[in-house]
């Protein structure tokens, strides 16, 4: 029983951390119609910022600031926000599919920097010894993980609440207006490029936040944590849950992460160690199938966008 509970806590920490990234993607794709194919890159920026700001000093690698956890979180959001700003300036004038290609390229480039800029990222070896704040707050792994889950729930809850407010605000309605008809929105004096940039930055900051939470929990970061498969997972979570619905984003995160980990468990049990690479392929195929089948059978996702009509409108 204890084993089950402790596993459940562990599972929820990861699923909800990813959920925060899905919320960010939901703001970009669900509400604004921005195709960000570089999610993994922005999660990586957040994760590495956390690792550098809070980690111990290392030989020949930038670090040793040993700052508090909260500074790491804020720093991660700022860093991925700045990254998003630079990227957004260059790409957000572009139409949908070019944006997809460009953001895909950004993720590839960020991955290259993670692999090769050893002074900043420790190269392929990555960075270790990143402090987990729950270690100071509780004793014993179970209690520590429970505390960390509490932290993730509080932060995720704040993000969820803020997004719900944001998308119902005038700014949020403007996002949807631009998503539906850019020309009409522009003719009403809105600046689509500017609003898209704001939405893109805010979404990427949430991805950075998710990366920071994951890194501090695992205590270790390396370029292999941010392969393009992560981008696929986040996207599948959003599509399965239902885009343009923040509840759907979180539901999708828990469901898809559940499928991913349980299929990984089954594969590691039943497939011999020599062909584990093929086992991993089966997992990825499963995610790809879920994604394509959802798009074909239930494009709205499990709980899709609710229809919002202004209470001033007469029907």
């Amino acid at each position: 029983m204890i084993g089950l509970i402790s596993y459940l806590i562990f599972f929820l920490i990861l699923a909800l951390s990813f959920g925060i990234a899905v919320l960010g993607l939901n703001l970009q794709w669900g509400y604004t119609g921005l195709f960000n194919a570089g999610v993994a890159g922005f999660i990586a920026i957040g994760g590495y910022t956390m690792a550098i700001l809070t980690g111990p000093s290392r030989d020949a690698v930038l670090g040793g600031f040993e700052m508090p956890f909260v500074v790491g979180l804020i720093g991660a959001m700022i860093a991925s926000g700045i990254g998003a700003y630079i990227v957004g300036l260059a790409t957000l004038r572009l139409k949908g599919e070019y944006l997809a290609v460009a953001t895909f390229g950004i993720a590839v480039s960020i991955q290259l920097v993670c692999l090769n800029w050893e002074y900043l990222t420790g190269g392929t070896l990555g960075l270790i010894g990143i402090p987990n704040p729950s270690k100071d707050l509780a004793t014993g792994p179970l209690a520590q993980n429970a505390v960390y889950l509490g932290i993730v729930i509080v932060i995720g809850g704040i993000a969820f609440w803020a997004l719900e407010r944001i998308v119902k605000s005038p700014w949020g309605r403007m996002l949807k207006a631009i998503r539906e008809d850019e020309g009409a929105a522009a003719s009403l004096g809105k600046s689509p490029v500017r609003v898209r940039l704001e939405s893109f930055i805010l979404g990427c900051m949430l991805m950075g936040l998710a990366g920071a939470l994951l890194t501090a929990f695992i205590g270790y970061i390396s370029p292999s944590d941010f392969l393009p498969i992560v981008t696929f997972q986040i996207w599948t979570m959003l599509i399965v849950g239902g885009s343009a619905n923040n509840r759907g984003a979180l539901l999708g995160a828990v469901l898809v992460w559940g499928v991913w980990t349980s299929s990984g468990f089954v594969i590691s049990k039943f497939i011999p160690a020599e062909i584990q690479a093929q086992g991993g392929a089966l997992q990825a195929i499963l995610i790809g199938l879920i994604l394509v089948v959802t798009l074909l059978m239930r494009p709205r996702g499990l709980i899709g966008e609710e229809k919002h009509v202004s209470r001033h409108a007469s029907l």
Partner: peptide, 15 residues
């Protein structure tokens, strides 16, 4: 929409 096709092509590529 055609962006959904772009996105589906992501999934197909993975498969």
């Amino acid at each position: 929409g055609h962006m959904t096709m772009v996105f589906a092509s992501f999934g197909v590529a993975l498969l």
